[in-house]
Design a protein around this nucleic acid. Sequence first.
DNA 1: GTAATAGTGTCTTTGAGACACTATCCC
DNA 2: GGGATAGTGTCTCAAAGACACTATTAC
Lengths: 237, 237
Amino acid sequence: MNKKDKKYLENYSIHDFDIPLTSVDMVIFAMINAKLNVLLVERVEAPQQGMLALPGGFIDLQKDEDITATAYRKLYEKTAIKSPYLEQVETIGNKSRDIRGWSVTVLYYALINVDKIKQQKSQNSVWMPVEQALKIPLAFDHIELIEKAQNRLREKTLYTALPVELMPELFTLTELQTVFETILAKKLPIKSFRRRILNANILHATDKSKLSGKRHAQLFKSTGIDREYYFPRTLVL
Amino acid sequence: MNKKDKKYLENYSIHDFDIPLTSVDMVIFAMINAKLNVLLVERVEAPQQGMLALPGGFIDLQKDEDITATAYRKLYEKTAIKSPYLEQVETIGNKSRDIRGWSVTVLYYALINVDKIKQQKSQNSVWMPVEQALKIPLAFDHIELIEKAQNRLREKTLYTALPVELMPELFTLTELQTVFETILAKKLPIKSFRRRILNANILHATDKSKLSGKRHAQLFKSTGIDREYYFPRTLVL
DNA sequence: GTAATAGTGTCTTTGAGACACTATCCC
DNA sequence: GGGATAGTGTCTCAAAGACACTATTAC
């Protein structure tokens, strides 16, 4: 820091500026009962007290190193999960979204392995199918935020293997396909799907199998690299 | 607004919270002399007075309806251009990027038609090749911000026709290809490129042509729909 | 004519989609 | 054997890449 900056800082106060309220909101997805679910919490304080809302809140200027840390902290507070897939979607800011005035929120979404949601320490939080969440009144503009996160997930499902992040430790290709189909709201051809996934080399075949009615299905597990994998071609909706 | 919220607001002050400084930064790209250039401005006030920086600044809580409006306003102030291609890249926030303390910036990039940059009212602003801008010291973390915007542009150039936004009113396919190649830092096969662009149906062939040395080249113009167009396949770097 | 730039013909390759087919299991 | 679920064989099609080729102009 140079001398001029030092001098400037001595006379600086953040309260000299009119600044907006800045927060982080999280859309946390998990597959429950073959449906894409989102985690909602009941607001315990005004404004919008009592309404369901996305988990989120303000940056802790002492504890949080950066804004991603804020997102991870919020996620951990609600789910006790440390390192899920987390991605920033978009930042929304305007005059009208919060009654307190000009407000900015940095929107993230996370994909949670369904195995882990049982260990959650949720008190006043509730999992709800996305479909349903979009129909009930939510606090602020949170309906819109869920739609934005869902659209991002949908788009990325067309050319990445991200939905693997929603799977339990072991899963069959048919189960994985069902998750893809749920996100895309569209049936996919079996043969193409298997070829696509298997050629990608992002799964590890196990010698275990699962019986879900009739013929045994082979169980696979994630190698963890699905986060970086891009299919050579995009599916078309 | 309900009664509880009204009461809450009466006792509310934004200064009750420790909040970060939130700003908007712009990476404005244009093609100049066959190079990708970025617009920089000299900082006239502390902190970092005298250094080159990205155009940007704070949200005007009175004037700006939403954060996109802030981005357009900043852009207009520096270039007098009203509606270029504008896209939000990412929001960066941490303790260390600004000496004033915890600071958040919403990063946008814009693509400017080279025809229009002559009408600019820039006083203390300067166009500089991206290459060069990344090598000199810039204010705050602006080197990193330019890299993020450049990466986004590069990625999108692999599967969209966005570079058309950088072209003048009339241009040849060879010129367009050169712009793609500059952004990607990679030669592209002529035949594939032309087929790809022409099949996309995003350009309008004119009956004019241009002589740049030897054989005349046909001139095309944008239909404006390149912003929404996605090629059926992604190029591989 | 030659050099230089613009533009085409056409073969190969890759991976998605269609769809009929086979395999394995329980009853 | 029948029904249900898992999984394969193989053809077609679209678009990218390779590369040799032709076209048009200035000189």
